[in-house]
Simulated scan of single mutants.
Amino acid sequence: MTQQYALRVMDTHAGGDVSRIVLGGVKALPGANVREQMVYLRDHADDLRRLLLEEPNGIPEMSVDLIVPPSQPDAVAGYVIMEVMGYPIYSGSNTLCTATAVLEAGLVEKQEGEQCFVLEAPAGRVEVSAVVENDVVRSVTCEGLPSYIDTVDAEIDVPGIGRVTYHVAYSGGFYALVDAEMLGFSLVAAEERQLAETAHAIVEAIRRAHSFVHDTLGDVGPLPFLHFMGPVETLAPGYHRARSATYVHPGVICRSTTGTGTSARLALMNHQGLIEPGDRLETESLRHTRFIGEFVARETVGTRQVVKNTITGRAYVIAETTLIANADDPMIEHLRLDHVIEPRRR
């Protein structure tokens, strides 16, 4: 009899970015905390990520969040983030989706009004505030990672494009930030393919020329993200809006503006003297979906000026299902699943 594996999943989206939340079916992972469990998956069980993000079960534009036991004593759940580029230690849109899923799945009992709880990402403890109205999760606000500027006004020659000016921020991953108008973009949906091709060329050029090291985490891998920045419009004192698009290497333009992309832009605006603590930036995607980043505080850590921030958005549940993987399916038979997914009970 062919072996089958079953995963309980809840599909969600925030700003158009689909996050598949894995609620059950995965065996207990080694590791004293969420970061160590992430490392185990990355180094020994990456077939789970491939199963859920590759055909026939997924597409590279999706993300996966695996619910795991937390190590933080006040955390209600841990979550490991899986994307086409690998295993980011933090993601704003994935955190919005995971927070919504733990409420909708009953891991945290929903309460009318505002309720606060803690999740544990691979990056560590994350405070979350959710607003529930008529038993519906209307919005979620989560901590963004403390963000800083690593590089300002660097230039690089990009084959087929020419000389490009860029900045680099850290906001949960290293981001190249580029001016969209300087590259001829208006940041509309019709430009999506060209944006991806342009970003791919820029990221490849930067990767060949430079590596980036986090002040405390050390080497976190090659540059994975690029954020196209539209012009900033001030709608009211302390409230700004900008069109934007985030690229994930290789080849993906995110449907949302992304939480980490918004945090990176806040760090740059702080560096440029354009915002003060308490100010907010509303980023708008190619699909007109929006996240709101708030500049909470400015701190000095070592030689860096670090921006503490929050990200606010809304996630929607779009499916709840049991995903079945058949071991003899030619589309997935090359994947090793038995050491990480529980066999299906018939």
Rank of each mutant, 00 (worst) to 15 (best):
G106L: 09
V126T: 06
G238P: 04
I206K: 00
R280K: 15
L323A: 05
T260E: 04
I21H: 04
G162C: 06
R193Y: 09
V220C: 12
A242E: 13
D11H: 02
P237L: 06
E320C: 05
E192W: 10
F295L: 01
I21E: 06
I202S: 08
A319I: 09
I318L: 08
D11G: 06
I253M: 14
P88V: 13
H200N: 14
V317L: 09
R49H: 06
L107Q: 07
E36L: 12
G173A: 15
Y247E: 07
P224S: 10
T303L: 07
E284Q: 09
Q272M: 06
I89F: 12
S186C: 08
T216F: 11
R163N: 12
T12G: 07
P250Q: 13
G58H: 06
F291K: 00
L323Y: 10
S186M: 12
S71L: 00
E276D: 13
L183H: 10
H227G: 10
F212P: 01
L335N: 12
S244W: 09
N94R: 09
G78W: 11
P231Q: 07
A75V: 08
N94F: 02
T12F: 03
L268V: 04
Y5W: 13
G16R: 03
E342L: 15
L103C: 03
R243V: 14
V26P: 01
A319N: 13
N326P: 07
N94P: 10
E143V: 00
V9D: 06
R163H: 08
K27A: 07
E133F: 05
H44C: 02
V76N: 03
V152K: 05
R125A: 15
T257Y: 06
T141V: 04
D43N: 14
E114G: 05
R42P: 08
A180L: 05
V137Q: 04
I89P: 11
A75F: 05
T100M: 01
L52S: 06
A75Q: 00
D153K: 04
V108G: 07
G160E: 09
G106Q: 10
E192K: 14
